[in-house]
Amino acid sequence: MRALVLALLLAAPMALAQEVHCTVPVMAPVMDWRGLGLGMRYPSSFAPVETTSDTVRFASRDGQGSAAVTAIPNGLRQGLAAVMAEARQDITGNSGGEITYSRTKGSWFVLSGFMAGRIFYRRSLVSTDGGFIGTLWVEFPRAMKPCFEAAVTTMSLSFRETGR
């Protein structure tokens, strides 16, 4: 019985993904990325498209989803709570977004919700030495949630400081 329930739960996102006609594979081989003192795993349905001194941008092959990894100097030596408060203000006050999920643990926090018809997912950390703030920002159309859930999970759970 447990196996049947688990199989049904695992199959549900795949079935929903087929209903919304995903234009990228829901499940794809996983790649490793390291840079900017950060690292993560990302599905091969995404690819790095632009790199600057503090940002790497990834885009899904169909252009519907994007991810950005940034590492900015923490010149004010802000703690995690201050960085999170600033992020909340930027999302809700400055951009008119709605936060539907938040979590804080150790040196990182997550904020997720809706902004301009898209789902966003932000995971930020303050480096061990407090010298920089690392952020992963992923977004995609609301209707394509089943298509991008696995990608967000892969990226977010693996997003870490690697050292400079």
Rank of each mutant, 00 (worst) to 15 (best):
Ser112Gly: 10
Trp137Val: 02
Cys22Pro: 05
His21Ile: 15
Gly113Ala: 10
Ala12Tyr: 15
Glu149Gly: 06
Tyr121Ser: 09
Thr128Met: 07
Glu86Met: 05
Val49Glu: 07
Gln18Tyr: 15
Pro141Arg: 12
Pro73Gly: 10
Gly106Ser: 09
Thr104Asp: 00
Pro146Asp: 02
Thr104Lys: 00
Met40Ser: 11
Thr55Lys: 07
Pro13Ala: 12
Asp62Thr: 14
Tyr121Gln: 15
Phe120Arg: 09
Glu98Ser: 13
Ala17Tyr: 05
Pro48His: 10
Thr104Leu: 01
Ser156Ala: 13
Met115Ile: 08
Ser60Arg: 05
Gly131Glu: 05
Ile119Asp: 12
Thr135Lys: 09
Thr154Gln: 09
Ala67Asp: 08
Phe58Trp: 08
Gly113Lys: 06
Asn74Lys: 14
Ala87Trp: 00
Ser102Pro: 06
Thr23Gln: 12
Tyr101Pro: 05
Lys105Ile: 03
Glu139Asp: 15
Gln78Pro: 13
Lys105Asn: 02
Ser60Trp: 10
Arg164Asn: 04
Ser124Ala: 06
Val152Arg: 09
Lys145Phe: 02
Val24Phe: 04
Arg103Thr: 02
Met40Thr: 07
Glu149Tyr: 04
Gly37Phe: 04
Lys105Thr: 01
Arg88Leu: 04
Val69Ser: 02
Gly93Ala: 07
Val126Glu: 03
Tyr121Met: 15
Gly63Asp: 08
Leu36Gln: 06
Gly79Pro: 01
Glu161Arg: 01
Ala12Asp: 12
Thr23Pro: 15
Gly163Glu: 08
Ser95Leu: 13
Ala17Met: 05
Thr70Asn: 05
Val126Lys: 04
Glu50Pro: 11
Val26Leu: 12
Leu6Trp: 07
Gly113Gln: 07
Val56Cys: 07
Ala68Ser: 15
Arg118Glu: 13
Val24Pro: 02
Thr104Cys: 02
Leu4Ser: 06
Ser60Leu: 07
Phe148Arg: 07
Pro146Glu: 02
Met31Thr: 09
Cys22Met: 12
His21Ser: 15
Gly163Ala: 10
Ser44Lys: 04
Leu125Glu: 03
Arg122Lys: 10
Val110Leu: 00
Ser66Glu: 13
Ile91Thr: 15
Ala116Arg: 15
Phe58Ile: 13
Met155Asp: 12
Met31Arg: 14
Leu38Phe: 01
Leu6Lys: 10
Gln64Ile: 07
Arg164Phe: 07
Leu38His: 01
Phe120Asn: 12
Arg57Asp: 14
Phe58Ser: 09
Asp32Gly: 01
Ile72Pro: 01
Glu50His: 10
Tyr42Ser: 05
